[in-house]
Write a protein that binds this DNA or RNA. Structure first.
Lengths: 128, 128, 128, 128
DNA sequence: GTGGTCTAGACCACT
DNA sequence: GTGGTCTAGACCACC
């Protein structure tokens, strides 16, 4: 797990995105115990309060849960994780396509197959 | 020219991106006069100082120049603009592909045709 | 550190020059923490935004860096500072000699020894 | 006669300095007729009002005079010119020495002989 | 308390 | 009316 921050963007938000990302791609597996807040703070090189804030937001989303005496764990609800992953992918694709349009691309075709489904999704765009 | 802002990100940076987009996609043409700083401020709904800051950054990049009591103009250096656009596109594509890989996409194919060249560039990725 | 301003010249530019001087002559040492932006504003008797602008310019030159919630520091790259200082000195000397020539000085001899080198540089000029 | 301007400094002031400079070094000779305001405006690439303003300031200093129907002339008072020239030279030297000190020069020696006097002036500075 | 951002409003030089 | 500068004052993220 690596964290690199853009100082012009709220760090806790970037942390949330990283955690979601690591849960989505399986770096953090269902039911896995997260490193302690202090540890994460060290890994990420930020204050532990900032980590707390981020983890709370992820917990609100339902993707991790707290075992009071024992630390924080990734949810075992794989469907929820899957949904979040799909969401994330769709958002990234949408944003990419939007930006490519704005930048003045003439023609674009994108085919994507995720691990979760058999279907290949196709996105096309042409200037006219 | 439209501007919409994400309040979690410094506005002057978002402005810079917008201007770069508008120069890249030809909304702002080489040698064209920009709306006055105050006008842009009104269009974008921000303070004129914020516009100043953003335009200064774009000027530092060499894409616009200032005619002191006369206004600001897009550079007439079309090569520079072209290079900039290509750079921007390549960066966005690279970043997109990198993220898609990391998120665990199984298969991906991307075809892109820019206005500048006849060539269609193809990017492919498969998990194995 | 003292600051005196000529009101016919943008203050932020004069500030930049002051900071460069202070870094060049060792008033501000490599890796030293600068006074806070607000403090400098008070010392210099200007608005903190003006200080910000000036320090940003110095940062663009690579001579200071920002530790976001911690303050601003002089670069530890002593070579860069040295190079900068030499450049500055050479420019000022060249400009001075050029002006003295143009103004019609008959004869001029200048000897300079910097802290950095043992060598004494000599510049001479005679009208004929 | 050439004019190059630093846009960050009031242009009429720079013009005044240029004119004084050209009178000092004999580019503009005593009793010589100046180019017309319009001509100067074109040469300098600035608005004629700006030239007017500058020439008025020089006239206030007594170095040029206006012959109502006939244009503007350099004064024939050579002593006055000489005095101004010496003044200018001294100012430039002082400023140069001051800056060299501020920049942290260790040792400096400057000898200057002007056309006007037999004397060689010597300036010396040492850090300690 | 650190840097960073933004606004509103004022004033300046130059055309 | 153009760009540029500056101030005062406010608010934010992070430590």
């Amino acid at each position: 797990m690596k964290f690199e921050f853009d100082n012009n963007y709220p760090i806790h938000m970037q942390l949330v995105k990283y955690i979601l990302f690591y849960i989505s791609n399986g770096t953090l597996k269902p039911n896995e115990k997260l490193p302690s807040v202090r540890e994460l703070a060290e890994i990420a090189g930020v204050n532990h309060n900032t980590i707390q804030k981020a983890l709370n937001e992820v917990e609100d989303l339902g993707l991790i849960y707290t075992n009071r005496t024992n630390g924080k764990y990734v949810t075992e609800n794989q469907d929820l994780i899957k949904k979040f992953k799909e969401n994330m992918i769709n958002e990234k694709i949408d944003q990419f396509l939007k930006e490519m349009k704005k930048i003045g691309i003439e023609k674009l075709k994108l085919e994507i197959k995720t691990t979760e489904s058999e279907e290949v999704k196709t996105y096309e765009y042409s200037k006219d």
